[in-house]
Amino acid sequence: MVIVKIEPEGQTVEYTKLNTVLQLLNKQGLHHTDALVIRNGELLTQDEQIRQGDEIEIRKVVSVG
């Protein structure tokens, strides 16, 4: 299980299996320059592997206006 928190919406989504950051972004309909992807306080590039048990935050960067 991988737990993903999405900001600024504050939603939490769970995935049973995820391989890479790119796959996660695709599932969320995001391109890699749309959001910061953070794990344990570190930024992840889109080629990074995601492991079982990871807790990840997606922080969208496009501000309103």
């Binding site: 600024p8 969208k60 309103v64």
Partner: peptide, 16 residues
């Protein structure tokens, strides 16, 4: 990083 409560809340707006 929370949007203003008076904004529509859409994160991708038109031209952007």
């Amino acid at each position: 990083h929370l949007p203003c409560p008076y904004s529509s809340g859409a994160s991708f707006t038109g031209h952007k």
